[in-house]
Simulated assay, not measured.
Amino acid sequence: MLIKEKALRHWVDHFYGYGSWDARFWFVGYEESGGDLPEEVAEKFDYFYDAHASSTEATLCDIRELYKRVAFRGDGPKADLYTNRYEYRFDSNAIQNGVWKNLIAFRHGYRNEALPDLLDYQKNSFASSSAQEALIQLYPLPSPHNHAWYYSWLDMPQFPFLKSRTLYQEQLYEQRINAILQKISAHRPELVLMYGMNNINSLKSSVQAFFPAAKFKMVKAIKLQTPQHHRADLQGTTLLITTQIPALRHGRIETGFDWLEFGKAVRSA
């Protein structure tokens, strides 16, 4: 399946993630996951173009409907249980997402609510249009865990910034962060958690340019409990920025944190 120019352009310009801007909790990742196979990328782009062709601004879409359009191409003993990504993450035999379960725990910790069955919550509620959470991406193009940059291989001279990750990020950063900040100002979510960020100083500068009264406080990490993070109040919205991701790095327990306790700590601070 080929990546189409119009679908790619529409995704880059308008795709910002999943759920609703009216959600009370926004979880902003550094970039969209996936991207190992061009077929998977093309299927995402095509769904979004078909479903949101009339979009003229930053748009969140239905993660369950998009995942139904993306074929499951994994291997392993359970691979034959799934035909698409929806079945893999949301159907009766779904597998728990390691990042999502910690974001769910964080939100419940912040609200001081009892932790639900995490897999059931993922399947039935997480990041739906009526849910408490929205999943938002600072950068739109799906990128694999190994951070390889496959888009330089596309024969699309009309997208010169795709020749390198650096050019791509330089081209899109201002547009993307300003759109997210404008949405924060308009919708006033309760909390915005930006995780896995490697451009902390740029983000803080952008936030303070948009919200001049914002003042950041750096909160140190507590090993295996809460990650180091930067915190600011944006006219009633609590903003947190951290380099950490809500998952173990390389599967090593010493790289992880208790995201339920992190949520509680943020609420009590």
Rank of each mutant, 00 (worst) to 15 (best):
L119Y: 05
A94F: 00
L141N: 13
Y139C: 11
L119H: 07
Q122G: 04
L115Q: 11
L119I: 05
L115P: 08
L103Q: 01
F126E: 00
E133T: 04
F106C: 05
L118R: 09
L118N: 06
Q132R: 12
I104A: 12
A105R: 01
G98L: 14
L119F: 04
A131R: 08
H108W: 02
S128M: 05
V99T: 09
F106L: 02
L103E: 02
Y110K: 00
R111S: 09
A134Y: 12
Y121A: 02
L115F: 07
F126M: 01
L138D: 13
N102E: 09
N97S: 12
Q137E: 13
A114Y: 06
Y110M: 07
Q96P: 12
N146K: 15
Q132N: 12
L118C: 09
Q96W: 02
A105T: 04
Y121H: 05
E113V: 11
R107F: 03
N97P: 07
R111L: 07
G109I: 04
A148N: 15
L135C: 07
L103W: 12
S143Q: 15
N124G: 07
S130C: 10
G98K: 13
S125E: 10
Y139S: 14
N124A: 08
Y110H: 05
R111C: 08
I136V: 09
A105L: 06
L115K: 09
H147F: 13
Q132L: 10
I95L: 11
S143E: 14
V99S: 10
I95K: 10
A105F: 05
A105E: 01
K123N: 04
A131H: 06
L141I: 12
A131I: 09
G98R: 13
P140E: 02
P140Q: 04
S143Y: 15
Q122C: 06
A114N: 04
A114L: 06
A105V: 02
K123Y: 04
Q137T: 08
V99K: 09
S128I: 06
W100G: 08
D120H: 00
I95N: 08
L115M: 14
D117V: 08
G109C: 12
A131M: 07
F126K: 00
S125D: 04
F106Q: 03
P116Y: 01
K123W: 00
G109H: 02
N102L: 13
Q122E: 08
A148S: 14
P116W: 00
H108A: 03
A131E: 06
A105Y: 00
A134D: 06
A131D: 09
Y121V: 00
R107H: 04
Q96V: 12
A105G: 04
G98W: 12
D117A: 13
K101C: 09
V99H: 09
P140D: 06
L118K: 05
D120L: 02
L119G: 10
R107D: 00
G109W: 03
K123V: 00
L135Y: 03
A94T: 09
H145P: 15
L135R: 03
V99G: 07
H147L: 12
I104M: 03
S128K: 01
